[in-house]
Amino acid sequence: MKPAPFEYHVPTTVEEALAHLRHYGGEAKVLAGGQSLMPLLNFRLSRPAALVDINRIGALSYIEEENGTLRLGALTRQRAIERSDVVRSRLPLLTEATALVGHLPIRTRGTIGGSLAHADPSAEYPAVLTALEGQVVARGAGGERILRPEEFFRTYLTTTLGPDEILTEVRLPIPPPGSGWAFEEFSRRHGDFALVGIAVLLLVEGTRCAKARLVAAGAGPVPARLRGAEEILERDGLTEQSFEAAAARAAELVEPDSDIHASAAFRRHLTRVFTLRALRKAARRIHGGH
């Protein structure tokens, strides 16, 4: 399990990195945290002609709050996000989800941009990006493209990022204070990819649910935004009955697959169970409750 040979470049600026990518015309891979790419290289399942290692582009690592949005450099490590006070206070949903990403030494290296660009539909970050209606910034030769989740995730492990583009920034709108949130998931072991994960965000006006966001991870080729279930909550309010109706609707909306860890039917069922659990938890947290 040793990687096949590759050319190796360590740019210190995004422009330099883009130049390398252009040079290889799709035959190069961007190496960020490496926690997904390196296993593929070691198994020789991925044999790129070159690696463009962006770990020395210092300008890609930051967490900044600006005009109601949290901007995270694509190279920001998951560990930094987990520890960040500004993330904890502004986007506790992201903090909660981050603690569920792999294990501590994985989060040391793993980055938010890498996780999103890898686009594993069972992973936590794609679901969080979708639930927060965030954006990613892709930079290429022609400049920047700003992509919404539905424009970014295409299918399993596939995004609309071009071969000569780099994901440079993640923009996550900060929900208004008093919102409810939760990330709940079911995995076989601690730290495993979720069989099903549910991200919930509840925006309230007074006692009314102004907006509900419900996203399922692991229940389809891309993170599944469960609009039909959200509408139930927005229409019927935050009651146990509406939670149950929304959870039942969520289970109808997802399109999970079967694999050795869970049948499609079980994933569909788990979608209902965890939607309900996440909704209850999120509702308890409205206006700072626990």
């Binding site: 190796y8 290692d53 040391t108």
Partner: peptide, 27 residues
């Protein structure tokens, strides 16, 4: 395991635990 699961190769890089099978020496 050389794929980042077993953790036997964990070392501290700049003070933080990391899998040394998921890093290149040049990094």
């Amino acid at each position: 395991c050389e794929h980042g699961i077993c953790g036997a190769c964990t070392v501290l890089v700049n003070g933080e635990a990391a899998r040394s099978c998921l890093m290149l020496a040049v990094q």
